[in-house]
Computed example of a mutant assay.
Amino acid sequence: MNYLIYGAGHFGECFHRILVQQNTPVSGWIDQRLANQMKFDLPIFDEQTADRNMNVIIAVTPLVNSNREQIKERLIELGYKNVLGFFDAVQKFPGVFSQYAQLEHLWMRKNHDEMLDNTSIQWLRGRLKDNKSKIILDKLCAFRASLSIDDYPEPDRKVEYYPDDIPFNFQSPVRFIDCGAYTGDTVEAFVELHTKNIIRLEHIASFEPDTINFQVLTNTQRELKKQNPEISFQAFPSGVWKCVDLLNFNQGQTSSSNIIQGEVINDSSVSVIDLDSTCQAMDINYIKMDIEGAELAALEGARSLIQTQQPVLAICVYHKPKDLWELPQFIDKLQPNYNMYLRVHEHLGLSTVLYCIPKGSY
């Protein structure tokens, strides 16, 4: 029986490559965004028009708390007879992760040795505060070494940037810097925590260089301000870096827009700031960074803030292979008075976050 591949993105291409190598017939794709187009000379259908009797491979990694996790159930309700969920498909067609690694997307590399530094990993393991963090690190490293579903790091289903198994213990209202604010999803999550009396929010400063994302972000904050007048909001249309500068910018209107070093091009340049010169007077006590690989430069630009104010840090460590150990090592040199925790909030090791909590009250 022929296969349809649900999702015409990078993972879909990897499944297609393996099926072709195995001489397994592929009749097309299912992708709501690209319906009625062609890919690799195969038609792209939407969910309503594809043949329900074909085998369907879901080639879309599920996102926690997203409708991606319900794709299989929805297809079955629509009458599809044979649907392989993402993890079932990966087990049936081993090697997909290795195929995906050829793209060298985020932390994945063709050469497994580039994804691990055993000496630094052992240092980090000894530096992590709780046993859960150590288990997560071991799982991440095992998966990097094997790229096998057997070592797959399952995501944590707790609130990203405020998991309840990490002792934040704020003694004063939260004054939050959101680096890589996207369209305000983290801002909304923190305001929800505030309305539930889990935290007390006083101020949020958001940085987002993508102009379209920034427009949505400001609209989001405007609505939140109406409902929560006791919270102050700021939004800056800039990236976060080690200094004030003008840099190239890959503006994709997605959460993966990123800053690129190099010669400035007028129609794709973006202003960047450093937190030390921008936020020194804000008395900040929480900094979150998800800035597509610019985290190290941004931490360099927050050197004084981290050394003197010791804010809680939530730093994404999955954009580059070395981020997993280089970012905690850099933070430790700046300010050793942190307890460090590691959590994974999305599939495929994405949204792997290093939490740094100041020792003692703050």
Rank of each mutant, 00 (worst) to 15 (best):
D150N: 10
A50Q: 13
E230C: 09
V60T: 09
I18Y: 12
R52V: 12
L116H: 12
Y3T: 04
F143H: 00
P155V: 01
I284T: 12
D88F: 00
V60I: 15
H16C: 14
P328T: 01
F93Y: 13
H319Y: 02
N131L: 03
E77Y: 08
Q310H: 12
K359S: 01
K92P: 14
L224G: 09
Y341R: 00
V83T: 10
D267E: 13
M38G: 03
G262T: 06
S257C: 01
S27E: 15
Y355I: 00
V317E: 05
K225F: 09
D323E: 09
V344F: 05
I166L: 00
I71H: 03
N250K: 15
D150K: 14
N2C: 09
N118M: 11
A302M: 11
G360R: 04
P163Y: 03
N285L: 06
Y3H: 10
I166S: 01
E292S: 04
L84Q: 15
V56M: 09
A189L: 10
E13F: 00
F330T: 00
D267P: 11
L124K: 01
E223Y: 08
D138N: 08
L63H: 08
V96K: 07
H347L: 07
L313C: 02
N36P: 06
C14G: 07
V264P: 11
E114T: 03
I198C: 02
